[in-house]
């Protein structure tokens, strides 16, 4: 297992290195002239050259990349062109907000999604199963931002229970702080709950038909034990891989949902950066989000290996 973890960590380091090159090349080469953008459309050629020189844009590409990459390894993410201050503190503050939102949503998704899936599987063909099917079908057919708007309409406009956007500082008290998180988190979970419960349902139904579940029932074990100890553990295996995919979805969803609710997270920061052609900020946010995604995938793979001895022993000895 330790060997497997090490191997995966090395692979991720390699992928991140390649990603950093890719992000750097795409953002640095293609825009044509960053200095022009920064200096303004009507700046004289001298001003543009001066800006290019100040930013080191007149250096060879390799030198520029080396500066950027070595800075990142040392914890320096560069200086934002628009805000004119170091990217790192801004980025990590926004990241904290996003992480909070994502974590809350993820817990929701795991609890409600898996729970709903199991219930639908047990009462296979019942009313609850049909309702869950319709809910999941609609849930995966609609983009997050539309759900966000529907929720705003219902809970902020008609019922007036919750704020329609923004975030409250911790100092404003627990009430406002949580109330600002509810709608974005609910929006994020909607699609994912649909996804996770649909998968849990089908894998649970299959597991419940299997030989060993029949054996467990034949032994006279109580239904609760059969479900939780025998069936669930195996039925959850495919769900775990999908949860990893869903972390990617969640990260994408965070970007969109933050835009809908004007929530000050990393997604909104990235969109701000793109709109203002703030290269260092774009590069740093994309790299950080991608790195988090890679780590999330690693964790999911490890969990999968942990729950599935076939893989744990198979790959570890390879």
């Amino acid at each position: 297992m330790a060997f497997y973890v090490l191997k995966r960590l090395l692979a991720i380091a390699a992928i991140l290195a390649v990603m950093s090159v890719l992000i750097f090349l795409i953002t640095q080469i293609l825009p044509g002239n960053v200095a022009q953008v920064i200096a303004g459309q009507f700046a004289s050629p001298e001003t543009v050259a001066a800006v290019a020189h100040r930013l080191g844009l007149d250096q060879p590409l390799l030198v520029q990349y080396w500066r950027w990459a070595s800075g990142i390894l040392g914890g320096d993410l560069g200086v934002s062109l628009v805000m004119e201050r170091p990217v790192a503190p801004v980025l990590f503050h926004a990241l904290g907000n996003s992480a909070l939102l994502a974590a809350l949503s993820f817990v929701f998704v795991v609890l409600v999604g898996i729970g709903l899936g199991i219930l639908a599987a047990i009462r296979h063909g019942g009313i609850l199963d049909h309702c869950a099917s319709i809910f999941t079908y609609v849930g995966i057919s609609v983009p997050e931002f539309f759900w966000g708007i529907v929720l705003i309409l219902v809970f902020a406009r008609y019922l007036d229970w919750l704020p329609s956007g923004g975030a409250a500082a911790w100092g404003e008290g627990l009430g406002p702080w949580i109330s600002h998180l509810v709608l974005p988190a609910a929006t994020l979970t909607f699609t994912l709950i649909a996804h996770v419960s649909r998968l849990t349902r089908s894998s649970m139904i299959e597991t419940l038909r299997s030989q060993y579940v029949r054996n467990a029932r034949a032994k006279g074990l109580p239904e609760r034990v059969v479900l939780l100890r025998h069936a669930l553990r195996n039925a959850l295996l495919p769900t775990i891989t999908v949860l990893a995919i869903d972390v990617g979805w969640l990260i994408g969803g965070v970007v969109v949902v933050e835009a809908v609710f004007a929530y000050p997270g990393i997604g909104r920061l990235l969109i701000f950066a793109i709109q203002h052609h703030d290269l260092p900020l774009i590069q740093a946010s994309i790299l950080v989000i991608a790195a988090i995604y890679c780590l999330a995938n690693l964790i999911a793979d490890l969990l999968y290996a942990y729950f599935n001895p076939k893989i744990r022993y198979g790959r570890a000895s390879a």
């Binding site: 990617g248 994408g252 970007v255 969109i271 793109i274 994309i286 991608a290 995938n297």
Partner: peptide
């Protein structure tokens, strides 16, 4: 290794 929307944005 990029989340889909991020690759699109990139």
């Amino acid at each position: 290794s990029f989340p889909p929307i991020l690759l699109g944005l990139l």
